[in-house]
């Protein structure tokens, strides 16, 4: 009995250890914790941070970074999280734990630092100026299929704005497919050009919807413009292929030769049976005549 008690005690101890290890503090060594963020809090860095946050973090941590995404996760805007140094957060993003994947292999160091900057600005937006409105115009090149975005200030002066990140997309069934780079910055004339890639499929006439956006930017408000161009390869109708008589099992899709063969065999067999029965009657009839 005493032995059983010991075993139970050990088991309980082991279980509590297991539970404890789940909730232990996430130890970060001192040299990791004091690592300095090499990036300044600049609109350009923040925009990169926001882009990456939207792509990689939102699913678990939520749009507002409050930990209410598709699963319950750490609240990134509360005091408990924000009082950690940049170095600690950086280490945790790189290594991950439990449901938090290690992003060390997925993201570049600069990208991680920019996400950290973005999280800091989320709780303290005073560090950045309020965003301005811009005007976004499009011109298209026909010879080489290309699309040029011109970013101008929204006031009457219409000054070209440089160093604005413009995103180019093609509309697809369930979302927007990026064309060009992740970031396309405007030049001094406020223009940025992206070449339309080949082999993009449009609708049945080859029309594609191009969407140009300024988004996730800290200097300028979101704006988007669309253009429809006949640049894509026409979507082929595959109805004929689908309706081809190839699916043997389904009645309406079986090949004609198979139908003829199978039904022919049945017809021949029945014909023989009918012929035999008919002849039996004839023999009987002939017999009656003979007897008379």
């Amino acid at each position: 009995m005493a032995r059983l008690n010991t075993i139970v005690a050990i088991l309980i101890f082991a279980c509590s250890l297991g539970a404890f290890s789940q909730t232990t503090a996430w130890e970060v060594s001192a040299d990791q914790a004091t690592k300095k963020n090499p990036l300044e809090i600049l609109p350009k860095n923040l925009a990169l941070g926001r882009n990456i946050f939207k792509r990689t973090c939102v699913s678990c941590h939520g749009e507002k970074a409050d930990g209410k995404g598709l699963i319950q996760s750490t609240n990134l805007i509360d005091e408990k999280f924000q009082k950690q140094t940049d170095g600690v957060v950086f280490y945790k993003i790189i290594t991950g734990r439990d449901k938090m994947p290690p992003f060390g292999a997925m993201l570049k160091e600069d990208e991680i630092w920019s996400v950290i900057n973005y999280l800091r600005v989320l709780v303290d937006p005073s560090a950045i100026p309020p965003p301005k409105n811009v005007k976004l115009e499009l011109t298209t090149g026909e010879e080489i299929k290309s699309i040029t975005a011109i970013v101008l200030s929204a006031d009457s002066a219409k000054l070209p704005l440089n160093e604005v990140d413009v995103h180019f997309y093609v509309k697809r069934e369930f979302g927007l497919m990026r064309i060009g780079e992740m970031s396309n910055y405007t030049g001094a004339d406020g223009k940025v050009k992206v070449v339309f890639p080949e082999k993009i499929v449009g609708d049945s006439e080859g029309n594609v919807t191009l969407v140009v956006k300024i988004e996730n930017n800290f200097l300028y408000n979101d704006i988007e413009t669309t253009a429809v161009k006949k640049w894509g390869t026409p979507l082929l109708s595959h109805e004929d292929e689908f309706n081809r008589r190839a699916l043997w099992g389904a009645r309406d899709k079986s090949p004609v030769w198979l139908l003829l063969l199978a039904n022919g065999i049945i017809a021949i067999v029945w014909a023989v049976i009918v012929y035999v029965i008919y002849n039996l009657f004839r023999i009987k009839k002939a017999g009656r005549i003979f007897i008379k």
Binding site: R55, G175, V201
Partner: peptide, 12 residues
């Protein structure tokens, strides 16, 4: 259309 969209990130 030769395009697929990720259900989580919305990337196409």
């Amino acid at each position: 259309e030769d395009a697929v969209t990720n259900g989580t990130s919305g990337e196409t």
